[in-house]
Nucleic acid binder design. Sequence first.
DNA 1: TTACTCATGTAAGTAGTTACATGATTCC
DNA 2: GGAATCATGTAACTACTTACATGAGTAA
Lengths: 193, 193
Amino acid sequence: MSLRHAILAVLTAEPMTGYDLVQHFDESVGFLWTAPQSQIYPTLHTMDAEGLLRSEVQPRGARAKKRVYDVTAAGRAELARWTSERNSYPADRDGIRLKAAFYELADLDAAEQQLREHADRYRRRLEQWQERIDAIRARRVPLLRKRLHHLSPDRHDATVAFKVFAFEGQIARARSEIEWAERGLELIRRLRS
Amino acid sequence: MSLRHAILAVLTAEPMTGYDLVQHFDESVGFLWTAPQSQIYPTLHTMDAEGLLRSEVQPRGARAKKRVYDVTAAGRAELARWTSERNSYPADRDGIRLKAAFYELADLDAAEQQLREHADRYRRRLEQWQERIDAIRARRVPLLRKRLHHLSPDRHDATVAFKVFAFEGQIARARSEIEWAERGLELIRRLRS
DNA sequence: TTACTCATGTAAGTAGTTACATGATTCC
DNA sequence: GGAATCATGTAACTACTTACATGAGTAA
C-alpha cells in the first residue's frame, strides 16, 4: 500500500508527468520503494479518479501532449494521515535467511559463493546509501531543493534530518548483513577443516 | 517463490498433513517464512501434481480421512538445486523507512510513538529469536530432532550450526532496527528543543 | 452436549512481475 | 535519416491477503 504514498510524497515536491515519476523512482525515492513503470501509470489513474491527485494535459512540441500530475488537498491530507498512523509491518518473510537455515543441503562451495555475493551486494548498497546521505546533507538533491523551496526555512533542518535518518537505517541494515555473511563464511571455513 | 521450498524443507524432516504443516509454519520455519493456511493447501495440491510431493490418504478415526504428504526424489532434487542456486533478492521496498523519510509531515508525537513501537517490536523478536537459538543448540526442537534422526551423526553439527546461523542473522537485524529507532527518538527530542 | 482440536478447503481481491506495444520529439 | 529520449499504456501471470465455510473426532 506504500506505492500511493511514495507517489504522493514525490509529487508534493513538484508536479510532474508519469514519465518523470518513473525516473524519480529509479533515482531517489526508489532507494526505499521501487516500482516498475507498468505499475505507476495505472496507479496514477486510480489516484486521479479517487481525488488524491489532479492532472492537467499540457502540449508537448507541435502535436504531442503530456499529462502533468499534482497533489490535491485530499492527497496532502492522506499523506499527513499516513505519516502519523501506526506502522503496519509486512509478514516475516526472508528467503535468504530461510535458505541459509538449510545450507546443510547445499554444496558448500555454492553456499560460500552466495554469502560472498550477499556481502558484496550490501557493500555496494552501503556505498550508494552513504553517497545519498552526503548528497542530502549537502542539499545536492534537486527534488529535495524544490521541496525545501516552498517550505519555511525553520523547517528545513528537520526535513533534511528525517531523510538522512531513513538512509541511516538502510546503512545499519547493510552493515548487519555484511557482518552476518562474513560470520557465515567463517562457519563454512570451520566446517571444511 | 520460497513457500514451496519452505514446505519441502519441513517435509524432509517428517511426512505430515496439511494441517500439521500449518502448525509448523506458525511455530518453526514460520519465523523465517510465514504463510497463511489458505495458501498452504492449494500449494500442496500443485506440488503434488508437479511431482515434488506424493500424498497418501490415511484413515482418521471411524469415518474421517486425512492426507499425508511426503517429499519425492524430484522434491529432494529441487531442494538441493534451490540451496545451491544463486540468491534472488526481492525488490528494495521498506514502507517503514519510506515513512520515516517523510516524518516532517507527521505529528511529532505520532512519529515518536511509531519509533517506540518499532523498537519494542524488535525487542520482542530479539527475545523470541534468542530463545529459538537456545532451543536449536540444545536440540530441544522436535522437528530438528526428527531431521537429525535420519542423518549420519557427523552431519549433525553442521545442520544445527546453519539453523543457528540463520537466526543470528535475524538477531543482527533486530539489533540494528532497535538502534535505528532509538536514534530516531533522539532526533525527535533534539527537534523538540 | 458442548467445546475444542483436527482437517480441508474456496472465493474475491490487491500488489507486484515480466513482457509486449506504440508513437512523437529531439538531437546529431 | 536514424538513434536516443520522452511519453503512455496493456496483458497475462504469480504471490499473498482476508474472509468465509464445513465437518468429523475427542475429551470433559
